[in-house]
């Protein structure tokens, strides 16, 4: 291949690449446009009351479209899942990367990644069959569904993201740091907590944030486990309805173009904005760090 031809091919390749990525970006923008358009009348009529009010009664004589309880439930469920999954996930990653013999890592990582392939409805089904019954029968709760139940299953679902993100962050540290630590004779726990983790804590935080985005948008498992009540959650063990569950439950039965339909689109917009904000926030927080480091 002559350099000139190669140059041309590269240019064409770049153009195709550009086209495809523009399409992908355009797709995201058009989703925003579509959902924004679908909910515009609701925003026009109710304004920020949608975000502030906790009364959801789209079919009442005086329709109300407040989704504050759903926002609270969504965040509570997702943050709860992070509380459960983050320590477990980061510690697993440290174990796999630093402590375990290599063959254990080679065996375990594919298994952990396999967890991401399990459909969420299966998780939800397992949760409903095992967790909800456990809370009802063993702990004597009147009904077993709760945000806590949702958080437990979400935690299992996001664990692979946290583990593999943290694992790759740890693996990216040059061997020199470990060798230097060994040469100075510090113990392994000291080397991990004082040398390695400070180097990559931002990447680990990014892995957790991506997992948070995943947990916020998850629908099926939470729909089956959180109870879907319209009450404002006041503890981890109260029931609640997440934004995604609200949309999944009611979109099928809402009349197209009605206020109800638009309210659900508004909920979708809020959910989308929430997830986008998390992603943009993490990216913004991460990018300057790389330059400082020169890594």
């Amino acid at each position: 291949m002559t350099p000139v031809r190669g140059d041309k091919t590269d240019k064409r390749l770049a153009a195709v690449g550009m086209l495809v990525s523009c399409l992908a970006a355009g797709f995201l923008i058009s989703i925003y446009g579509f959902i924004g358009y679908g909910s515009s009348a609701a925003w026009h009529q109710f304004g920020l009351e949608i975000l502030r009010s906790d009364a959801w009664a789209p079919l009442g004589q005086q329709p109300r479209l407040g989704i504050l309880t759903m926002i609270a439930s969504t965040l509570w469920c997702a943050v709860g899942a992070l509380l459960l999954a983050s320590p477990l996930g980061v510690c697993s990653a440290i174990f796999l990367s630093e402590v375990a013999p290599p063959w254990v890592g080679q065996l375990m990582r594919p298994v952990i990644l396999l967890l991401t392939g399990i459909p969420s409805v299966v998780y939800g089904f397992l949760g409903a069959a095992v967790l909800v019954t456990f809370f009802e029968v063993k702990l004597g709760m009147a009904s077993g569904e709760s945000l806590f139940c949702g958080s437990i299953v979400l935690a299992v679902m996001i664990l692979p993201y946290i583990i593999s993100g943290s694992y790759h962050a740890l693996q990216s540290i040059p061997a020199g740091y470990r060798e230097a630590a060994s040469a100075l004779g510090v113990s392994e726990p000291y080397a991990v907590t004082r040398v390695l983790l400070p180097l990559v804590y931002k990447n680990i935080a990014a892995a957790i944030a991506i997992a948070f985005g995943r947990a916020t948008g998850e629908t099926m498992a939470v729909l089956m486990l959180a109870g879907n009540t319209l009450t404002m959650p006041d503890s981890w063990f109260s029931k609640g309805e997440t934004l995604s569950a609200l949309i999944a439950l009611e979109l099928g039965s809402s009349e197209a173009g009605s206020l109800h339909h638009q309210g659900l689109f508004a909920a979708g917009l809020v959910l989308l904005a929430l997830v986008t904000a998390i992603n943009i926030g993490v990216n913004g927080w991460l990018s300057p760090r790389r330059e400082e480091d020169g890594r």
Binding site: G60, Q61, S143, M224, G227, N228, K239, S253
Partner: peptide
């Protein structure tokens, strides 16, 4: 069932007659 569904509407017409169902009700999909 979810508050917009056919069953809920039929139930509202026969029994609730406009009174909202308790917010603590568990909605099943």
């Amino acid at each position: 069932r979810d508050l917009g569904g056919g069953a809920t509407q039929a139930f509202d017409e026969a029994i609730m007659k406009g009174t909202p169902i308790t917010k603590e009700a568990i909605q099943l999909p």
